[in-house]
């Protein structure tokens, strides 16, 4: 009961804190998606059908990963550095309620960007997507994993290191992650690394449910996401509960 009451009040608090931030975030995510679906055809004027679908479904995946693994850890890192996270931790609320409330608000920030990303892709390439009903749990799973892992990065690393790592993640996600291309384009050793990291699985789950007629939906990807989600949440929860 106390958990639910705290959760509701904390969601209100965190949503109000981010309300000015949400339109900006949506604009940036839309620009991301626009950049990808408009930019890639400039680089590669002739795109085959698979590539078009990869780009159209990769844009929303990149959008989720960028918020979860870049914007979120930077924001949490800032809150840690300025002491506001410590203030929130001093409140008489269960840690679980605080963490789940904050993740809920971050997910709410992530999701509109996904919808916009899909719409922008479908519009640019004139696609008629046969979106699977599984898209809802799939997108929620991807968004939750991205936010949990991002939260864990900020929780365990000092702020400056978080900034550096997240900058590296931007390059890694845009250039070297199989979100807008298939993993077999990568060297075998790099493909092996991606097979255990969560980013490839995020791409597979997203495209497998947004364009199920074009791509399969590997169950292993769900499992990979579940493991990373659990790990991210566990690390964050432990860091939140820890007394220095």
């Amino acid at each position: 009961m106390q958990l639910l009451r705290s959760y509701r009040l904390l969601v209100t608090w965190q949503a109000l804190r981010k309300k000015n931030y949400l339109p900006l975030m949506m604009a940036v995510q839309t620009l991301f998606s626009l950049g990808i679906v408009l930019g890639y055809p400039l680089l590669f004027p002739t795109l085959d059908r698979t590539s078009i679908y990869l780009i159209a479904t990769g844009a929303p995946a990149i959008s989720m990963v960028s918020v979860g693994l870049v914007a979120l850890p930077q924001t949490i890192g800032e809150q840690k550095a300025e002491g506001s996270l410590a203030y929130m931790r001093s409140l008489p609320v269960p840690r679980l309620a605080y963490l789940v409330a904050d993740l809920t608000v971050w997910m709410a920030i992530v999701i509109p960007g996904v919808v916009l990303g899909v719409l922008v892709g479908a519009w640019r390439f004139g696609l008629e997507l046969q979106v699977s009903p599984l898209v809802v749990p799939a997108v929620l799973m991807v968004a939750l994993t991205a936010t949990c892992v991002g939260y864990a990065i900020a929780s365990i690393l000092p702020y400056m290191l978080t900034v550096v790592i997240t900058q590296a993640i931007v390059v890694f996600v845009f250039m070297f992650s199989p979100l807008t291309f298939l993993p077999d384009k990568l060297p075998a050793w790099f493909e092996a690394i991606h097979s255990v990291l969560p980013i490839q699985a995020m791409g597979e789950v997203t495209r497998g449910t947004i364009a199920p007629n074009e791509f399969g939906l590997p169950l292993g990807a769900f499992l990979t996401l579940a493991v990373w989600c659990f790990l991210g949440f566990g690390v964050t929860y432990a860091a939140m509960s820890r007394r220095g």
């Binding site: 009040l9 608090w13 309300k19 000015n20 002491g83 506001s84 001093s90 008489p92």
Partner: peptide, 25 residues
């Protein structure tokens, strides 16, 4: 507790912030 650092209430009005804290307690 009133911490030395500023409270994270940007985006909230004082009325909302005080009400939320009271209810959270």
């Amino acid at each position: 507790f009133q911490a030395q650092a500023q409270v994270p209430i940007d985006g909230l009005t004082p009325r909302q912030a005080i009400d939320l804290l009271g209810q959270l307690r």
